[in-house]
Design a protein around this nucleic acid. Structure first.
Lengths: 192, 192
DNA sequence: CTAGGAAACTGACCGTGGTCATTTTTAGGA
DNA sequence: TCCTAAAAATGACCACGGTCAGTTTCCTAG
């Protein structure tokens, strides 16, 4: 049988996660320092890396969890039928994704599963984004000459483009949501 | 009058750039170490940072230059008229962008001008991408119900999406170019 | 209850990017 | 040619993520 995980392990892991969340709550994601976390959790630095491959792995878990809970709320909404409704309903997700430059960069970097090995929590969230939008689009008032899943991929691509622009010195004039609406109207409007 | 830049400054900078290029040529972008560069250039570490804000700033210059020269070649082509032609003509650019994960990440991170201040060489390249595609699309056989500049932004968004997928464990089956062609056919085909 | 092997933990140490007070070099006016 | 102020270069130092040989704790077979 599988060697059982010691209770101690779970306790230590929980302490590390709690300490991390506390730091992030106080100072934001970007400011998190491993040293600070282990001090707050009362463990040695090496222990941190026995529990998480690296700092990014911890971040992926924390950001993934947060994003996942936002998805839960978003999915509770009635399916949007129009582009403005779609944007409004997705707003909490996009807001979190662009809440910190650090968060956005990490999301993008992990959006397609880290270069290495298996798919992580952030990649799962991007898949979920895709799946949710696809379902919505199946019954929304949008073009039907291309499949809903292709449309959904496009929505994701345009959302990322619009979010990048938010961090861009060049396009600061136009707001993220105006930009996204223009994109999505062009992408989703039924061909007449 | 402006205090003239000392000749020494230009010489040192040139040495640093040459040393960097040499290292990158030998070992790739990711492997570049500042220590190695300064040793090869025969200067102290502090000097490096007097010439470049940080390591990323050097990378931006080198990658930007390389990308820029690829654009020069690409622009020498006849304007593409169809989606497959468009993809074929852009191929050298996309190939370089995805040549190393490190390069792709850095490009994305700087695509919209670093969070701070003024627009850098990489952001210029992304603007150039946009402008070039826009010009092509103006005379290509594509939908005309939305403006060429919006179409061009979409092409960029889809290209980035397709490139991300290249680094994604999930979608490895489908090739970058097949994916991009599907996207662009749906995005650019004239509404009938 | 005990022994001993495995799992968990430790902290000194390393690699690497980046800083800054100090020293060296440059250039041009007397 | 010499003097001097500004520009450039230096290298010891720091911050921070990550490693690993050694130590402690836990669990279970006997």
């Amino acid at each position: 049988m599988q060697k059982a995980v010691q209770k101690r392990t779970l306790r230590t892991r929980a302490r590390l996660l709690a300490a991390s969340e506390e730091v992030i709550h106080r100072e934001g994601y970007e400011a998190l320092r491993v040293e600070e976390v282990v001090k707050a959790a009362g463990v040695a630095k090496g222990t941190f890396f026995a529990h998480f491959r690296d700092k990014d792995a911890l971040m992926e878990i924390l950001i993934g969890e947060r994003l996942s809970s936002i998805f839960d709320q978003v999915e509770a909404n009635l399916p949007p039928k129009t582009v403005p409704e779609l944007i409004r309903v997705l707003k909490p997700i996009h807001s979190f994704m662009t809440s910190e430059r650090y968060v956005f960069d990490l999301l993008i970097r992990y959006s397609g599963a880290a270069a290495v090995a298996e798919i992580g929590p952030i990649a799962h969230c991007f898949e979920r984004y895709f799946r949710v939008v696809e379902n919505w689009l199946t019954y929304a008032d949008v073009r039907k000459d291309v499949s809903a899943d292709l449309l959904a991929e496009g929505v994701q691509a345009f959302a990322i483009q619009a979010m990048s622009l938010k961090f861009c010195a060049l396009h600061e004039a136009q707001s993220f949501e105006d930009k996204l609406e223009i994109y999505l109207e062009a992408w989703l409007t039924p061909a007449t």
